[in-house]
Simulated assay, not measured.
Amino acid sequence: MTRTLSQEQRDFVDAIGDFCRREVPATRTASHDPEIYAKMADLGWLGISVPGEYGGAGRGMTDLVLFLEETGYWQAPIGGFATSVIAAAAYERFGSEAQKRQVLGDFLRGKVLSISMSEPGAGSDVGALTCRADKHAEGWVVNGQKTWCSNAHIADHILLVARTSTEGGKHEGLTMFSVPADVDGLAIRGIETMGGKEVNDLYFTDCVLPADAVVGVEGDAWPQLMAGLNIERMILAANMLGTGRRAFDDAVRYVREREQFGRPVGTFQALRHRIADHATELECTSLLVHDVARRIDERPDALFPREASMAKLKATEFAKAMALDGMQLMGGYGYATEYGMERLLRATVVSTVYGGTSEIQRDIIGKTYGL
């Protein structure tokens, strides 16, 4: 893809590729491999966006996007990274010094972080959540259910968003809490999905948290969440850009090699034109995602609701469409686990749902035009 990278960035991308070719198995069954994740921690890659004062590399959004794109392309089994870096950014912005030292330090050492917002009755409408955290002599007592919590089953820390007040509007009275995953009163149960057990139900029953478990300001979780939208959407966009690239390359490789009627199937106009369309979409997606990353690096404290939503929308929809058509281009082999396209389809089909559905992204984009 067309990119303007420094020599250091090109070397970084090459190093990721070299590592993945050596360490990532051709076929895998788990979305998260603790050994590979630990090796990346030792290389300092997990802390690419964590400030240097906490032991990270302190690099910007562009470098984070490069890492996520390349690991997505090589299908590195580090499923815990995305939620970890999203949660880490919230701790970095709003956590106490003690929380930053502990949680960011654990993240850099290869521990997984998770973030819990959704509930059975509160998905896209986060303001409708009802999981309660009430003040208690020892701090806080949490009761309620959370759902669709990615990586909670492998996490050491969970960043919980709970309701601490019913006064004011529905987006008021929400508070972030730092929750140890092994705390008494929390039950974590995996949800079976087509992608395996990657998401979970969380059940809080008289779960006691200390007073200093609050992350940021009590009652201010909503603006704190809004401050992290750039990073969440760009993480998902970058990962799906890499996954979509992989689906494209695998499909092209197959139609070049597969022969029917005495010639490669890719030389038939029906398939050649589809590859041309996908190549154009991939180029557009790459340019958009990397351009938004550059803008964020230029203005790291600014919100880019339109641009970040566009990047997430475009990258996830492209990746899903590419993997689906990749399966069609490969015929029966696209359905076979030996070739991996079916795994790419499973990885991409949910990407237009999590982290804000495509419909929500379109709604946000429309609102930025005053609609």
Rank of each mutant, 00 (worst) to 15 (best):
Q9D: 12
Q9C: 11
F12W: 05
D14I: 01
G17A: 08
F19N: 00
V24D: 00
P25R: 02
T29Q: 13
P34M: 07
M40Q: 09
D42G: 05
G47V: 01
S49G: 04
V50P: 05
D63V: 15
T71A: 06
T71W: 06
T71N: 07
Y73Q: 08
P77A: 03
I78Y: 03
G79K: 05
G80K: 11
A82I: 15
A82S: 15
T83E: 15
T83Y: 11
I86A: 13
A88Q: 04
R93V: 02
R93L: 03
G95A: 09
Q99K: 05
Q99G: 01
R101Q: 12
Q102R: 12
D106A: 11
L108H: 06
R109I: 01
S118F: 00
E119Y: 01
G121E: 13
G123Y: 09
S124N: 14
V126W: 04
A128K: 12
A133W: 04
E138N: 12
W140E: 08
V142Q: 09
Q145F: 07
T147Q: 00
W148G: 00
N151R: 14
L160N: 11
T166E: 15
T166S: 14
E167N: 08
G168P: 07
E172A: 13
A181E: 08
D182Q: 08
D182E: 08
A187Y: 00
I188Q: 07
R189P: 00
I191F: 01
E192N: 09
T193C: 04
K197V: 15
N200E: 07
A213V: 03
A221S: 09
W222E: 05
P223E: 02
P223N: 02
M226S: 10
E232K: 14
R233M: 06
M234L: 13
I235E: 03
L236E: 00
M240R: 13
T243A: 10
G244D: 04
F248D: 12
D249K: 12
V255M: 10
V255K: 04
V265P: 11
G266Q: 07
A276K: 01
T280F: 09
L287G: 02
R295E: 06
D297A: 03
D301Q: 13
R306I: 05
S309H: 02
L313P: 03
E317V: 08
F318S: 14
K320N: 13
A321M: 05
L329K: 11
L329G: 10
G334I: 10
E342W: 15
R346N: 12
A347H: 01
T348G: 04
Y354S: 00
G356M: 06
R362M: 11
I364S: 03
I365R: 09
G366L: 14
K367H: 11
